[in-house]
Amino acid sequence: MPDHLSLVGADAGVAVEQLYAAHWRQLVRLAALLVHDQQAAEDVVQDAFVAMHGKWSRLRDPEKALAYLRRAVVNRSRSALRHRAVVERHVRATAPGEGTVDGPSVGAARRDAVRDALLQLTERQREVLVLRYYLDWSEAQIAEAIGVSRGAVKSHAFRGSAALRGLLGDWWEDLS
């Protein structure tokens, strides 16, 4: 990326500042899709940046640093979810459709439904779907990032998509 060319050889502080400016927002949004909580997502990405700063002397390259950040965010999001004392799995305990009446908009209720559905997927399904469809990563990139085979990525993607279809059936009808 042209914005990062000046980072080659830069010190760690400069690297953090520039990578923050370019990628903070997207990385937090990535983490939020994985942990279902904005503050936890910000914590995860903040920690990833601090860790990247510590490893800059070995990374020394903006592309490697960005790859490191993304991988750190995925791994730390997984840890954050596992260690969360209370996971709200049932955001909407009421009947489907009630949120459309009470919520500020259909869009807001749909977003809540998607967040809730993501949390109900398995850890790997959620990671694969988010990396594939939010970051547009290839199967090979995902396989390397989360430490599974390409076949496993394909399988998680298929099963995750099917699970989402079931969980979001009502919204699927609304969108189509």
Partner: peptide, 21 residues
């Protein structure tokens, strides 16, 4: 799926943590 994930993610505006970092 791509549209839904982007809709959910783009709905959130991250707070600034640069000072903390």
């Amino acid at each position: 799926i791509r549209d839904l994930l982007h809709e959910v993610a783009d709905d959130m505006e991250p707070a600034d943590r640069l000072d903390a970092i």
